[in-house]
Amino acid sequence: MSARTPFNDLSAESQAGILCNTTQFQDFAAKESGFPKGTFGHSAAAEYLRKFCGIDNRREFETNQTAREKLAILRTEYDAWRGVIPNPRDFRP
């Protein structure tokens, strides 16, 4: 039996694909886009993620450092939204 690779050790492309397939991230993307919970599926969540990161497809993460940095920001905002970490916006002066 092989050990699972921790999420943070996956490529940005893989992380993005996994996120877009989760209902919770789809609900987050819908809310951030001004739509009600339950209205986004994989495709809409993927479009939101690509727009947020400024890319046309996930393969661009391989060569686009800025897009990877934006994905990290998006993951932080998503983690705060779902209550895994404190909201970083709450700590701004």
Rank of each mutant, 00 (worst) to 15 (best):
N87E: 04
N21W: 00
D79P: 00
L10E: 03
E69N: 13
R68L: 02
P6Y: 00
V84D: 14
G38Q: 05
E13K: 09
R92Y: 06
Q24C: 01
N21H: 02
Q65R: 12
K70N: 15
G54L: 12
R59I: 06
K31I: 14
P36W: 13
D27Q: 10
R4L: 14
D79N: 13
D56T: 11
T39H: 14
S2T: 13
E69Y: 07
G54K: 08
F40V: 15
W81D: 15
G41T: 14
A30I: 15
N87P: 03
L71Q: 02
T39V: 15
Q15H: 04
F52C: 10
L74A: 08
T5F: 04
H42W: 10
Q65M: 05
L74V: 04
G83I: 04
R59M: 09
R75F: 00
K31D: 11
L71E: 03
I18P: 01
T22Y: 04
N64K: 12
I73Y: 13
G83Q: 10
K37L: 09
G41Y: 15
D9F: 15
A45W: 01
D56H: 13
A72H: 10
E60L: 04
F28E: 05
E62Q: 14
R89M: 07
L19I: 00
F52V: 09
P6F: 05
G54Y: 10
A29K: 06
K31E: 15
A12L: 01
F28N: 05
L10K: 11
I55C: 12
V84G: 02
F7Y: 04
A3M: 14
I18Q: 03
T22G: 05
R92M: 07
C53E: 09
P88V: 06
S43C: 06
A45N: 08
I85C: 06
G41R: 10
G38P: 08
N64V: 04
N64T: 02
S33Y: 11
G38E: 07
S11L: 01
R89S: 10
Q24E: 13
G17V: 00
Q65T: 13
I73H: 11
F52Y: 15
I55Q: 05
I18K: 06
R4C: 10
K51C: 09
N87V: 03
D9V: 02
A67G: 09
R82D: 06
T39K: 15
K51P: 05
A46I: 05
T22L: 09
G83A: 13
G17I: 04
F52I: 10
C53V: 07
S2W: 10
C20R: 02
A30T: 14
H42P: 02
F28K: 06
E13L: 04
R4W: 12
R68K: 09
L49D: 03
V84R: 12
P36T: 08
E13D: 05
R75C: 00
F28L: 06
L19N: 04
R59Y: 05
E62P: 00
G17A: 01
L74C: 13
A46W: 00
G54H: 08
G41C: 10
G41A: 12
F52T: 08
T66Y: 10
M1R: 11
S2M: 11
M1Y: 11
S33G: 12
S33N: 13
P6K: 07
E13F: 03
A72M: 06
G41I: 07
F52N: 06
S43K: 09
M1D: 07
Q65S: 12
T76Q: 14
E32L: 07
K51T: 13
G17D: 00
I18V: 11
R92A: 06
